[in-house]
Computed example of a mutant assay.
Amino acid sequence: MIKAVYLFAILSFALVSCQTEKNVKKYPATIGDIEFDRKLDNADFKKCGSEKWRHFSFQYYQGTKEFSYKGEKIAVTEKLKKENIYSEKKINGYITVRFLVNCEGKTGLFRLQHMNSDLKDTLLDEELENKLLQFTKSLDGWMPKDIKGLKVDYYQYLTYKIENGKVSEVLP
């Protein structure tokens, strides 16, 4: 009887281990990696690095915390003011555009997220979101990052705080 219980325990462990191994492979290398989507992304945008490192991009919390834009965040804010982007709707919330900056300072893999003031996923104003996405794509002053002598790809995001249909703040 003890041998049967022991054998059952070993087989159960082996089965669970096999299940876990299968699940691991379907997840990206790093939480939050953006996968290429030919419907959304420019096929000419390329990640940098050797084949070994091409699939790895630094997140904002991995040594790339500073805002690396020519003229810093104030330059982005001033350009946004000149564009005069707003919504006719008196909406409040947040629109975040997340993207990858490669080792040449070029951008791609743009993704959008929208939330209301209570931070719940809500479509605010599709026209405003598209304008802010196009504005973010037009920013061409992103600087390559260097970590320990190696130029790297990194994720960047801009969150636009919307109050009464207008951008009141650019975060981070």
Rank of each mutant, 00 (worst) to 15 (best):
P144Y: 08
V152R: 11
N42K: 14
D125L: 05
S168A: 14
A9Y: 10
I95C: 01
Q62Y: 08
G93M: 07
K65L: 08
E72V: 13
D153F: 05
I2E: 01
K25E: 07
Y154R: 14
M115K: 11
D41W: 10
G49D: 02
S138I: 04
L139H: 09
G49W: 08
K106G: 03
C103W: 04
L139V: 06
F135N: 02
M143E: 15
S50Q: 06
I147W: 11
K39I: 11
I91C: 02
S168Y: 01
W142E: 04
Y154C: 05
M1C: 01
W53K: 15
P172K: 12
L139G: 08
L171S: 04
K22F: 08
T107L: 00
N84Y: 05
E129R: 06
I95N: 02
T20Y: 03
K151Q: 10
R98H: 10
L109N: 05
Y155S: 08
K148I: 09
E35M: 11
S68P: 06
A29M: 11
L158F: 15
N116T: 04
P28S: 03
I10F: 07
V5G: 00
K3Q: 08
K161G: 02
G108D: 09
K79W: 01
G49A: 02
L119R: 14
L124A: 01
I2C: 00
A4K: 15
G32Q: 01
A43H: 15
E78K: 15
L119Y: 09
L100Q: 11
S12Y: 10
K161E: 12
I95S: 04
T20A: 05
